[in-house]
């Protein structure tokens, strides 16, 4: 294996809530290789959202280092972070987070718009992305005219549009029924087979098991291959 795409070491993040200091992330270290399909599992309040924000470059650590593709995220400013999010990371959210006033095609075009891609190329690449998730003929529809599964597929196409290094999926099936969830997971598996690095964040063990590697997070601490831990905890 080559150099890991994500290298996180001794990451700390603390919040002050009502006078008490909460360690959202406590000394977290993890390495993720290119092409991996990894699930991060943890109950709510475990710090997984903070970890996701951190990996997604929406937030910066208080201490410790986070190297994404060799770049130290902790040392970048707002604008550089925005560029990194645009080029390296594809977000897939639980609530799809599509812009309701834009069509499916325009939603997929959006990251390319901020990357400064020309209008013609943008259109071509967005259509290609929609084709990958099987929604080419729905390109002109507004999100409100699409089913939940279709919306999430549009969101996946949007995440893929910029050809990012990692896909970051935060509870991608949380708002979908089990049949559609399976479809979305299938798409993600296919994408992984095509070589995309996928980080799946979930609280659902059944979904986490679909990944090739599983880590669990609890009280801000990360444990590799959460199998034993999971087995011992009735909450899963």
């Amino acid at each position: 294996m080559g150099k890991p795409i994500i290298q996180i070491s001794n990451l700390m993040k603390t919040y002050r809530l009502g006078g008490e200091t909460v360690h959202a992330l406590n000394n977290v270290s993890i390495e993720i290789e290119k092409g991996e399909f990894i699930a991060i599992i943890g109950p709510s309040g475990s710090g997984k959202s903070t970890l996701m924000n951190m990996i997604g470059c929406l937030d910066q650590p208080h201490s410790g280092t986070y190297l994404l593709d060799g770049k130290d995220i902790g040392k970048l400013n707002d604008n550089q972070l925005a560029t990194i999010r645009n080029r390296k990371i594809g977000f897939i959210f639980q609530n799809f987070n599509l812009l309701t006033k834009l069509t499916a095609l325009e939603n997929v075009e959006l990251p390319l718009l901020y990357a400064g891609v020309s209008a013609k190329e943008r259109r071509e690449r967005a259509l290609e992305g929609l084709n990958k998730v099987g929604l080419k003929e729905r390109a002109g529809h507004l999100p409100t005219q699409l089913s939940g599964g279709q919306q999430q597929r549009v969101a996946i196409a949007r995440a893929l549009a910029g050809n990012p290094a990692i896909l970051l999926a935060d509870e991608p099936t949380g708002a979908l029924d089990s049949k559609t969830s399976k479809e979305i997971l299938l798409i993600m598996k296919e994408l992984n087979e095509l070589g995309h690095t996928i980080i799946l964040i979930t609280h659902d063990l059944a979904i986490a098991k679909q990944a090739n590697r599983m880590v669990s997070i609890q009280d801000g601490q990360l444990q590799e291959n959460g199998g034993e831990l999971v087995g011992n905890l009735p909450i899963y």
Binding site: T83, R85, R87, N97, L98, L99, L110
Partner: peptide
């Protein structure tokens, strides 16, 4: 929310 989404997918402050 829209601003959040735009920022998450790479809109800079200037944008």
């Amino acid at each position: 929310k829209e601003i959040g989404i735009r920022k998450a997918i790479g809109a800079k402050r200037r944008d």
